[in-house]
Write a protein that binds this DNA or RNA. Structure first.
Lengths: 331, 331
DNA sequence: TTTACTTTTGAAACCCGTTTCAAGATTGAT
DNA sequence: ATCAATCTTGAAACGGGTTTCAAAAGTAAA
């Protein structure tokens, strides 16, 4: 509530001097400096961010745009972004789009109006490409990709490779009839994962069937039920993410199908949940923490980098829903 | 990037008129109004929030302070807060304290500097009581309570009643030897839950033992292992929250103990995960959505309400980790 | 047509921290 | 002691919407 003027008056100096003491932007006579510090203490002065932002044209804010706060993957990602941003002295403002393009456009505009210093987008339908391009603040797109090169940088995990890794593990564990519960094909990550899985299977001459699904639990439930009817002789499920894999397990369990003995199951993302559940889920890990860190770093270095795309490696995490040496093929 | 001046110049009116058109704060000649609208369109003008905030002393922001973004309960809560705030035209800025008092103090100060319009605190160690009291913006404390009446309002679920409900269900399902995996006793919610459980058990002459724990997965794992050694004849576990219950299940499963046949298990919170897991977890539901909604509403109605405390009812959700009629006592 | 009143409009003040700029003070060298 | 160079300091401008206030314009009544 008290302003810099009151502090200045109390310390018997000018507002400029108070500003200099607070920011260390210039040397101030030691005696005056102490008077200022004392006045700040006494008044409980905290500089108004809006005024500072207005002048500096920087709110020390990074906008993080995710499709849903209730999806554990994005939540973990947010944690990583927040930690890194905090270490750099930036605040994170989180926005969900709920998958709505209109919301996404509004958010971009709002962040611009808020004098945000950068935007990390994990949710970009192609409809907002032009909005991204028009953004005057740095935009880093992670996880999901837009078609054209419209953002300032991209960070993502190699989903194609992840898909191959998943399929390969299933095949090496003896699966002969794999079903892919594949995600929405207009989302690049889902498209890539499926492609990797399909390619690997055809290279090894393994049959692969597809059930369409999206990244949600409910969709996973339905897709798995459909799968049991359509492909009753399946012996391996490659799910598009962990949430879907968990729902698949639930349906298999309800139907008395043993995992991994009768059907093996692999997820994607390595969300915390995948390790908490019983049995623990075999999955493909994305280096979430690293993606978050890299995204923040890229968004903060406004200088143009030649390398605009950072691709990180996925990793196979073998746990209990697939057969493997560790547990003697039992699961 | 363009300012109101440029728009005004293009439309051949004063900045004041542009402001009036944008905000509808006064009648403007229809012809001029259209010129302004056109100029806004052409320049892509978006008013600078910092300037507006500076003058209005309101950033249209609600600060939400939680102990951890990776705890699903708080994540779901954030979702509810965000939805309600959005409906009222407010943005939400999320901060984690990671349980650190110093961070919490900084955050309160920062929100004040940001010209936030209100604060929802889910994490208040008693060390910040004075900071809350000194806050000039409305503060609503939810879920966890401070000792004294320092905030402007409180919203929470009746944890004591929830504890009773949990114990009662266990007893009615035949448990004779209950172990409570109780949370940190300096957190009011954990204290109340335990108290409710203990009281109900002693009223029904049932033995209740205690293992100390905190709200995390790792702590739950350890506590359960300890429990199996210390109280091998336990037939019911009342966990302090769902995360701990899930970790308990994991340990029981690893030890070949059947749930609910040999040991029954109940959690607390009804996080999404509790329904996703197999078997589905019996738990006490907090009306998360309602707590979030109420908290936002309270924080926005700055006028003093007589009723400063809102206590919502918990609800027993019977699923598969306790014996019950629905599944013929099998689980 | 003049007087009285209402409506529309722009100039200027305002919000408040930061920075520039030039004046004033200090230090150092000669 | 004198001049130059360096440092410290406050006044004032700045950022960009919003609002006040008084002037200008328009309307209605007399």
């Amino acid at each position: 509530m008290p302003s810099i003027k009151e502090v200045a008056a109390l310390a018997n100096v000018s507002p400029a001097t108070v500003s200099r003491v607070m920011n260390g932007t210039a040397k101030v006579d030691e005696e005056k400096r102490e008077r200022v510090l004392k006045a700040i203490q006494e008044t409980g002065f905290v500089p108004n961010e809006a005024a500072r932002t207005l002048f500096k044209r920087s709110a020390k804010i990074i906008g993080l745009v995710i499709p849903s706060i209730e999806n554990p993957f994005f939540t973990q990602f947010s944690g990583a972004v927040e930690r890194t941003a905090d270490a750099h002295g930036y605040k994170v403002v989180l926005f969900n789009t709920d998958g709505e393009i209109e919301k996404e456009k509004n958010i971009l505009q709002m962040l611009s109006a808020m004098n945000a210093d950068g935007i990390i987008l994990t949710t970009s339908s192609e409809g907002v490409d032009s909005d991204i391009q028009n953004c005057t603040i740095p935009v880093v797109v992670t996880d999901r990709l837009t078609k054209k090169n419209v953002a300032d940088a991209y960070v993502h995990c190699d989903h194609y490779r992840g898909g191959r890794l998943a399929a390969e593990h299933m095949i090496e564990n003896g699966c002969k009839h794999i079903v892919c519960l594949r995600g929405k094909q207009d989302i690049s990550s889902a498209r890539e994962r499926y492609l990797g899985c399909k390619d690997m299977c055809s290279e090894r001459d393994i049959k692969v069937q597809v059930i369409d699904c999206d990244y949600s639990f409910e969709a996973g439930l339905k897709a798995t039920e459909e799968m049991l009817k359509t492909y009753p002789d399946a012996d391996g499920i490659v799910a598009c993410n962990d949430i879907v894999a968990i729902s698949a397990y639930k349906v298999l369990h309800q139907n008395g199908i043993k995992v991994p003995e009768q059907i093996q199951l692999i997820g994607y993302d390595n969300i915390q949940l995948s390790e908490l559940m019983t049995p623990e889920l075999t999955t493909i890990a994305q280096p979430i923490e690293e993606i978050g860190r890299k995204a923040v770093e890229l968004v903060l270095q406004q200088k143009e980098n030649d390398e605009k795309e950072y691709i990180l490696e996925p990793k196979l995490i073998i746990r209990e829903t697939t057969k493997n040496k560790k547990n003697g093929g039992k699961g």
